[in-house]
Each structure stands twice: as structure tokens, then as C-alpha cells.
Design a binder for these strands. Sequence first.
DNA 1: CGGTATCCACGACGATACTG
DNA 2: CAGTATCGTCGTGGATACCG
Lengths: 98, 98
Amino acid sequence: MEIALHAISGRWTTLLLRDLMHGPRSFGQLRTGLPSLSDKVLADRLAHLRREGLIDRQEQKAFPTRSTYSLTRAGEHLRPLLTQLYRTGQQLQRHASR
Amino acid sequence: MEIALHAISGRWTTLLLRDLMHGPRSFGQLRTGLPSLSDKVLADRLAHLRREGLIDRQEQKAFPTRSTYSLTRAGEHLRPLLTQLYRTGQQLQRHASR
DNA sequence: CGGTATCCACGACGATACTG
DNA sequence: CAGTATCGTCGTGGATACCG
């Protein structure tokens, strides 16, 4: 459990992963999708996920630089976990409202 | 997702919940099961889980005081999530070792 | 565009001591 | 036994400014 929690640790990380679950995204796309997080934190999160081997970066050699982030095979393993987080959240919410 | 993450947020929380999944436990039993967390943090976690409506406390009127913590119905909803955290952790570990 | 470099505030966590 | 009270430390996240 600690391993999985560490993988998705940090604010915004799950939301970032959810975006990447839908396909490769550039730095700017990710930033646009989550307007309330700063460049620094976005870069931090991406670095963390890369160190964990969960995402991969492809850099286009040109100016201005373009980059593309995508899930690795290992990163795909997180999919059922994110799904379960969503389901559990819904159940808790429903239970709380009654 | 944020709702579920908030519910299980905080260091030791998932380990605490895992203990409680096995049945009701007293403050002392929980402390013994997790020797490396302080009384204060244990009390903090239990208070958090109670505020979230995930666990319940039964207090025995006697001296010295005895208390018993147990999962509520809402708390039971976390079971599949903890299971998934465990599974995902295993997969990540396996994938990393290869 | 896609980042780094600094700096700061705040809250979480932990250690220790004490109480009904 | 089952906590509460207090205090210090440290890391995380956020703001801002700058660079290739």
C-alpha cells in the first residue's frame, strides 16, 4: 500500500495522471488542464513520476522546445487504482449525503 | 478521487485502517500494532477518521478507561480501495525489479 | 514554449511531558 | 489505559522572476 501511495503522492498528482490516462500531453496542455497549479509544482510532479518510471518524456529538438509526456507500461498499472479512487469517493459522498 | 484521497490522507492512516479492517481495536492495540507512531499522531488520525464518519468509538465507563474503535458502514467502503492499493503496489514493485 | 531559480508560509509530524 | 498539551523541525506547496 505504501508503494502505491508513494507513486501517486503529492497534490495534483492524481489529476495529472488522469489527464495522461487519456493520451500523451505536452507541458502546456497539462498546465492548461490544471490552471491552478504553478509551473514549479507541475515540473516537480512530472519529475517525480519520471523518477518512478511511470511516465516518459519525448522532447522535440526545435525552437521553441516542445515536449510530450506519456504513460509507461508501469504507469498503466495505476489505471485500476485511479478508477477505484473515483468509485470509493462517490460511495463516500453518497453515504455522507444520506 | 480527491474525496477518497482525503479520507485516507495522513501518514499511517492506511495502516491503521488495515488493522481496523480485521475487527475492532482498542487505542493500545493500535499503538502496539504500529510502535513507531506517537500517541499524538494516533489520536490525530482517529479523530480525523471519526470526523469523516469512517470509524466509531465505544467508550467503556470504568477506570482505567477502555475504548474500542471500529469501522462504520461508510468505513467499510474503503475496503476495496485498500485492496487495490496493495495490488497496485505489488505490480509496481514487480515491474520495477525487472 | 517549457521549464529553473529563489524565497517564504504554513501545516504536518514527531518528541516529550503530563493527566483523569 | 487512553489520551491531551506544548513545542520545535522539516518538507510541501505556492508566488514570483528569469532563461534557452
